[in-house]
């Protein structure tokens, strides 16, 4: 899994609440047999017209915004458990998603894939949107070790919570598989004891 420690980046703001995984990646794109390539269909129906023309007013089609941090309204990732949602966001180049609340399953899937979901307060989320509105190139500094997000321009900072095991997985670039494989001797001992 990809390591994550620190990131300073501009953000892509998506100030919409209750974004469900069907919006993130519509069901008709789930027949694929690889994890790659879902990024091109990320937010497919918000991003493209029926005739495949990009919708100019959607933020992902606006060259003003760029960066590896997606910032969205509360209850991000609700609905279907499809892991394809996390794959699509990551495949589109994002390493961090910030919201004031994440749906449980999306959060787990994101963490299992090295995509960092950061839950911030409603107030801080509003400050991020404000900063980007004032300056589309405004950057955020994400520091996982110290569990903090800072709006660079104003130096406004907020800390966030993360499960200590999952935090160490991200910092070390470990996922559950690496974690269990590190115990391979124990697994073999267990098998022999049976």
């Amino acid at each position: 899994m990809k390591k994550f420690t620190k990131l300073t980046s501009a953000v892509v703001p998506l100030n919409i609440e209750n974004i469900d995984t069907d919006q993130i990646i519509p069901a008709r794109f789930l027949k694929a047999t690889t994890r790659e390539g879902f990024g091109e269909n990320l937010f497919r129906d918000w991003r493209y017209e029926n005739d495949q023309q990009p919708k100019a007013d959607f933020v992902l089609n606006d060259p003003t915004y760029s960066g590896q941090i997606l910032v969205a309204g509360k209850n991000f990732g609700c609905g279907s458990s499809r892991e394809h949602a996390a794959w699509a966001i990551q495949d589109a180049g994002f390493d961090v998603v910030i919201s004031s609340f994440f749906a449980d399953i999306f959060k787990g899937n994101a963490l299992n894939n090295g995509l960092l979901p950061i839950q911030v307060s409603e107030e801080f989320l509003a400050q991020i949107f404000k900063a980007v509105e004032n300056n589309p190139k405004a950057t955020l500094e994400v520091d996982l070790e110290n569990q903090a997000v800072t709006i660079s321009e104003t130096a406004t900072k907020e800390t966030f919570e993360i499960n200590p095991y999952k935090k160490s997985c991200l910092i070390n670039g470990y996922d559950d598989i690496d974690f269990i494989l590190a115990q391979k001797e124990l697994i073999e001992e267990f098998e022999q004891s049976k």
Partner: peptide
């Protein structure tokens, strides 16, 4: 889920 399918493949 699919990540866990991979987990079981790799580690049983």
């Amino acid at each position: 889920g699919t990540s866990q399918v991979e987990q079981v493949f790799a580690t049983q």
